[in-house]
Design a protein around this nucleic acid. Structure first.
Lengths: 214, 214
DNA sequence: GTTCAATCTGACCATAAGGTCAGGAAAAGA
DNA sequence: TCTTTTCCTGACCTTATGGTCAGATTGAAC
């Protein structure tokens, strides 16, 4: 066998294995935590879902809490990235509209992450309290200032920016967190068209509600 | 001692004890289930919170699941009752407005119940699936018909009634389920004035969003 | 007062869970 | 090839949990 020395620029087999297994475990953990909550989830179940022995999980993640923390941080980062959509336009209808689109897309692509976040916050945010007090608070205040500027310019009606943000979070995440209820009432999972319609309705009602569109 | 025979119309001491203890246990259970989810909650913790020995809980509720089911049913019944607010007026702004008011009031008075419901639905509604498929679906379809009538009469814009209902549920329950996040961003629990403002904002934005108010 | 059923509870049990660890397999480097 | 480091895992330990039960206590009926 020709054992050529590996390219140092490319990740070594070791780090490949590590990254692959961590991703595998995180994906399984997200699903199990979303389905059962932190207390109801078991390391054994996550291990089975990842196709790894339980002891191997503890090799990569020391404790159940470490694993849980990583899952929560993941979804938070995804949302933070999507939040930049709001800065893509100076027009409130376009900026807020893009943010709603992005949040709805995430609700569809990462429903489990959204549920884990909901679970975490509902239970007093024991793990991500500092995120709420720093990153999220800063981001929120920044957006509030931006919305207030739009109000001052007369581009939207004088609503309370804070509550508009809450409404956006609530409505978009509802389609992930309460997806089961919605699917039941819908007599089946939402189709592409259903998601399109849901997104349009949320956008239209909220944007019209704040006077960003006629 | 003069042991006068009790009035048969009034509940006996026995049933009094039973009702009082069941209520005590249910209140403690609602709190613990909301704080820890079904899996994270322990009968011991509920017992401690109720001030009763654990074995006494099992005297009134055979299993943890029985207790949990009762808690979930409670909040559902409270919501169903509030849903009647929507039928108090033939005017969409008043009817839907009253429903939003009622839902917001419940979010404030029963945040734990709302969280337990959220928990239950997020985890696939193992306990109340039949409620979703019967009572909730029927109620929803009834309201959709009512909203469609308003649309046909030109009293509100042609939005998708189903998604309007989802938005109402999402926004109102958000103030209960994500109350901790909101309180953190608010730097403290919401005051009376905060709740008043939140309710007004939700009502205004949604009602204007559907064209029920100018 | 006696009887009977309802209420209460400390002690106990079986199970399952998170976590540990010794030692084996596999990759990386020399 | 040899050594070292990383990766892997079956077996095991401790703790905590849901649930049980025998027997004590209390309220109701006569």
């Amino acid at each position: 066998m020709n054992e050529s020395p590996r390219d140092p620029a490319r990740p070594s087999r070791r780090t490949e294995i590590r990254q692959a297994n961590e991703a595998l475990i995180l994906a399984a953990a997200e699903k199990v935590f979303a389905e059962a909550g932190f207390g109801g989830a078991t390391m054994q179940l996550i291990a089975d879902m990842a196709g790894l022995p339980k002891a191997n999980l503890h090799y990569y993640f020391a404790t159940k809490e470490d694993l849980y923390r990583r899952v929560v941080q993941n979804i938070f980062e995804i949302w933070l990235e999507a939040a930049e959509a709001m800065d893509t336009s100076d027009d409130p209808a376009l900026g807020i509209g893009a943010y709603i689109e992005a949040k709805m897309a995430i609700s569809r692509s990462h429903p489990d992450g959204s549920k884990v976040w909901a679970y975490e916050v509902m239970h007093g945010a024991p793990v991500i309290q500092d995120y709420l007090e720093t990153t999220l608070r800063d981001w929120t205040n920044g957006r509030i200032a931006r919305i207030e500027a739009w109000i001052a310019e007369g581009r939207i009606r004088p609503i309370a920016p804070r509550h508009l943000l809450y409404m956006i979070w609530a409505t978009t995440q509802h389609y992930a967190d309460f997806g089961h209820q919605i699917a039941t009432l819908n007599r089946g999972p939402l189709s592409d068209a259903d998601w399109r319609q849901a997104t349009d309705e949320v956008k239209t009602i909220l944007l019209r509600g704040i006077g960003a569109i006629p």
